[in-house]
Structure formats: C-alpha cells, structure tokens
Design a protein around this nucleic acid. Sequence first.
DNA 1: ACCTGAACACCGTTCAAGT
DNA 2: ACCTGAACACCGTTCAAGT
Lengths: 231, 231
Amino acid sequence: MATRARRTQRRRQVLSREQIIDTAIELLDAGGAGGLTVRALTERLATGSGAIYYHVGTRDELLDTATETVIAAALATEPARAPATPENEIRVVALGLFDAIAEHQWLATRLAVQLTRNPWGPVTVGIFEKIGRQVRALGVPQAVWFVAASTLVHYILGAVSQTRIDGYTSGVETDEDREKFLEAASMAWQELDPADYPFMHAISGQMREHDDREQFLAGIALILDGITNLR
Amino acid sequence: MATRARRTQRRRQVLSREQIIDTAIELLDAGGAGGLTVRALTERLATGSGAIYYHVGTRDELLDTATETVIAAALATEPARAPATPENEIRVVALGLFDAIAEHQWLATRLAVQLTRNPWGPVTVGIFEKIGRQVRALGVPQAVWFVAASTLVHYILGAVSQTRIDGYTSGVETDEDREKFLEAASMAWQELDPADYPFMHAISGQMREHDDREQFLAGIALILDGITNLR
DNA sequence: ACCTGAACACCGTTCAAGT
DNA sequence: ACCTGAACACCGTTCAAGT
C-alpha cells in the first residue's frame, strides 16, 4: 500500500499532453490550420505558452502529433461488415481515411505537407502496413508487393487529398453547399473553350451526377484489377 | 511612327508582374516556402511592399501564380522521342510533373495545398485535360473516361507529392544524400517490430535497390493495364 | 517537475502620401 | 498609374522566474 503520495512530490500537474492534443484537434476542426495558434491554445486551456512547449514542443510538432493521432484512430476502427476478402479490407482502410478527412478537413493539406517532408514517417508506415498485408493476401508474387502497395497508397492519398468538402467556411457542409460546388465546377468546365479543352468539355456532364465516394472506390477497383493481372 | 512616348505618360513602370513571379520562384527554389517573404522579395527587387501587392496581390496569391506558372511550363515541354502512343504520352506528362517537382521542391507541398483548396482550379484542369485526351485515345468507352482519367491523375499527384528529394537543407541533392536517405529509411523499417509490421519488414530489402522514377512508372503501367481491361 | 507571461524577432497587409 | 515605407495587428518561440 505504497500508493500514498510517493515522496513529497508536489503533484501540481494539471495539464496533460493528451489534453493539449485533443484541444488542438478541436481548434483545427473549428478553424482549420489557421485556427491553431499557440495563443488560442493557451487561452482555451487557461495556461501560458511555455506549458505548451513543455508538453508537446513546437506548433509544428503538435500539428504532426495531431495528424498521427487522427490517422491512427482512423486505421484502428474496424467495421467488418462485408466478408473479409483482401479487396474489402483494402476498401475499408481507404474509406476510413476518406471519412477521416471528411471529418477533419485540415487533414487533407496537413497530410500532404507531412508526407512530403517525411515520406516514411509513422503515418505512411501505418497505412502502408495495413494495405500491404492485404496485397500479400491477394496472392501476387513477392516481387511485385512493393509496386502494388505503393500504387494503392499513392492513389488513396492523392485522391483523398484532392477530395475537398468545404474549404473556406470551415464549418459543417450541407448537401446544398455541395451541390452548388459541383454545379459551379461543372459550369466552369463548360465555359472553357472547347477548342482548348475538348476533353474537359466532353466529360463536364458527368460532373453533376458524380459521387466522390463512388468514384474513389471505382479507382481502387481499377487498380486492384491491374494488380491481380500481375499474377 | 507614333512610337514616341504616347501622351505624356510618365512611364515610370519599372517593375513587372512577371519579374516578381520569377523572383518569387527563385526565392522558393533557394529557401522553400519559408524563403518567400514579402520582405525578402522587396529587398531583392529594391522596392516597397506596396508594389508587390499592387502587381500580384497577396503572398498567397503569388504562391498560387508561381505554382501555376511552373506547372504550365512543365506541361508545355514536349520531348517526343518515343513513338507517340497514348501510353507514352501519359508517361511523358507524368514524368514532366515528376521532374518539375525534383527541380522545385516546394512544389510538392504547395501543389497539395492548392489542390485541396481548389480541386478544380487551373492546375488540375490542365493536367486532367492532357491526361484525358490520351485516355480517350486509348479507345475505352466514354462512360469510363472520367474514372480512368481521375485515377491516373490522383495517382500521379499522390506519388509525385510523396516523392521527396531533400526537404530541409533545401539545396542541390547529391547522390550520396539520396543513398543515405534510402539507407536510413530502409533501416528504420527493419527496426520496426516484425510482429507489428510484418509487411514493412518483409519488403524493407526492396527499398535500397529502389528507383523512384522506375517505381513511379511501374505504378502507371499497372493503372494503364487496369484501364485497358475496362474496354 | 511543471508552469507563468513578458519580451523578442519576425511575419503579412494596409494606406496615406508622393510622383 | 505606379510606387514608397511607416504603422499595425498578429504570429511562434524563448527564458528568467516562480512554485
């Protein structure tokens, strides 16, 4: 029963690393990357700026940590409804990331920043490992594991970074907003000079009736098909 | 011969929009995104900050413009060595972007930022149009043009963003640096607990003998294969 | 060990004023 | 029309000092 205050440790610690990270994510969700300032953090947590640096380091390091936290959570959730084929598992991972970005819009940009700066950091490694295992389960020869996995990962990260929900207003997205956005994009395409942009013009119609999620999965299916052809 | 100073226009204009953009790109190449400050620009151009805003607007807008300029140049160059099959044309576009990022390292991050904020801006449209035409030339049915093109574009942008050359020191990259980097990454993988990261562990060997460019093209080949299977 | 908060250096942007 | 540059508001980070 030595559980009583060991030594005369003053035990004033009232601020935790986790608490700071959670608050940071809240600020990011509410105001994007610009919403996370050291001052906003200290205000919300009723503390001084030094405390932040003591617990989590630089603002940039905090941003890294926040990203890793959210991604790890996204990779950890396992719905496991559909039969557990490798193809389905890959889809689950991909959609998990997709949804994480829909929920935390700042992730799209920050993910890109982070991958550029440190391509083989914990984020990529985590995603790569999850995808890679399923690639192996697909039964393709070991010699092509790397190409197969990296093509999938690159596609997923590329697609997911470019899937924006609502950039500026940084709030909840209504279906109306979304429709207006697609409408506007589709119209912008049609206004392009058909002589200069024949292709864009030709497919502008497919824009209005286009579902991001569905399109995203169609791309994965296409790549999976290419992979199994490697066998 | 009305070429003589028309009217008594004072003609003090000595600073051009183009000049500012070029200098901005120089600063970016030399010091990354952090190297482009309004103050550094005014110093190099021997002018006041107001002049910058007058010609190119906000720092953020200048960054957009610089990106568009570099990307447009990358898409414009046509080597045209190999026979002009659609597959080869797609490879040329992809490698053009790859090389542009190798030359202007800040592009990787900025591209991602820009695509997230405005997914259907001039940059994406330009790339999409170029890729799309070749997809059409591939002879796949119109119904799948969009999936085919967007899968390629997403892969290319994802892969190219994650291909880093040398992030921090922001200088020229020596082969030695590169080898050290790959060596370090490969070793980091092997140090991962094989129980937690069996896949990464299994392919860590392929890392050392891996050529970014080759790998990039292998991914494209894989996707092209998937696309032609749609026929 | 944990935290405070004033101080510092450095940002982007504006705008009255000049030519 | 084109440009100057002081002024402003707002950053991230440090660090001596407190408990």
